[in-house]
Design a protein around this nucleic acid. Sequence first.
DNA 1: GGCGGAGCTGAGCGGTGGCTGAAGAGGTGG
DNA 2: CCACCTCTTCAGCCACCGCTCAGCTCCGCC
Lengths: 217, 217
Amino acid sequence: MIEDAEAIGAAVGSALREAGYQVQVRPDGRDLEGDLARFRPDLVVLDVMLPGRDGFMLLEVIRRTSGAGVVMLTARDGVADRLRGLDRGADDYVVKPFVLAELVARVSAVLRRLGRTPSTVQIGDLLVDADSAVVLRGDVPVELTATELRLLRYLAAQRGRVVGKTQILTAVWGYEDYDPNLVEVHVSALRRKLEEHGPRLLHTVRGLGYVLRADET
Amino acid sequence: MIEDAEAIGAAVGSALREAGYQVQVRPDGRDLEGDLARFRPDLVVLDVMLPGRDGFMLLEVIRRTSGAGVVMLTARDGVADRLRGLDRGADDYVVKPFVLAELVARVSAVLRRLGRTPSTVQIGDLLVDADSAVVLRGDVPVELTATELRLLRYLAAQRGRVVGKTQILTAVWGYEDYDPNLVEVHVSALRRKLEEHGPRLLHTVRGLGYVLRADET
DNA sequence: GGCGGAGCTGAGCGGTGGCTGAAGAGGTGG
DNA sequence: CCACCTCTTCAGCCACCGCTCAGCTCCGCC
């Protein structure tokens, strides 16, 4: 990620890491070529407004020298920017200010589109397909609402790892400081649907949060 | 696609992506062999005028080392180029300047001709033929308007994948930011005609969009 | 064994996403 | 120039979903 505003860079960086990605943040594109060669990224998140070479110039460099996907960050009303970016081959764009969850979603959408990420995740006998929005428990399709699906996707991306309610709140809802009961309610609903046809997958870790894990004792 | 004019490369790239293809754009054929090995493309769109090796040289390389189809872009309206290209085995050519839709059409025509894409898509008992614009539900022909057909084609190309209304708006109408109700109205009309003689195929995924899918698992 | 905090869940409500009939605008062919 | 057809807009309706709340259970600790 190339972003000069330190707060944004840090926030996005940790959000993406939480989603399971490896992230490098740079404040400018000074050594973009070197970084591309060193890290061979699958995708670059690019701020438009940057000191030195701006986002569009960097976009050209990336397109010339690597097969990486590009997601651009543009200012709110910069329709011109946005078109310009897409025109020149950005794979997607996000308008500032944005919810972290949205950025993460777009990043993984682009990666998926580029074929860098398998679109389906499997946990035990649970199958989650991001493209078709289909969730299967064994062979039984599970009907989920949009929020439940977002929650499940996040937990699936973090599978095996304990995630706190606060963490879930920011990743799935974009809320910074909120009532954890919101998570509890949706976890409850999710469990009812997921565990109707099989053993528990979504475990509570008291005091810490939740884990999605298949227990094959 | 190999095209040194960046604007054209980007425009064609996104047009093809919207048509459902996965696209890589390169400004020259420097590492053509490597790219062929890496991406194993079904088809290469090749500009004739290129820095370094020109289109005809690259055409020979492609023909020697891969089974990919080739569509050539010729700037000159010179019949000579065109014949030369076809002579040496290009599958089709497009003369600059061209309309994006035409290039897309020719690309899919070539792919179809090469057997890389079924010209007809089948979803359950629904048959959509892209060439003849014939739509059959079982054995019953379905009469669609132009817009409905464009919408159905897009959904058929993306079948099994959930597509958002915004996505549909840009892909089918070319609108960037518009009233989703437009999509809803046409989906409604399409459903009335499609599902007159059979079960639901065009499903709503609340909060996410629509999917074209035959329901048996 | 009792107490407190963490977590669970059923019920209810307000908002909104989605559907559709109707009417107007625009275009095309006769 | 008229008639018809398609596309789009609009508004009303419905269902469902997401959130809040309150009371409950469960668990750990003293």
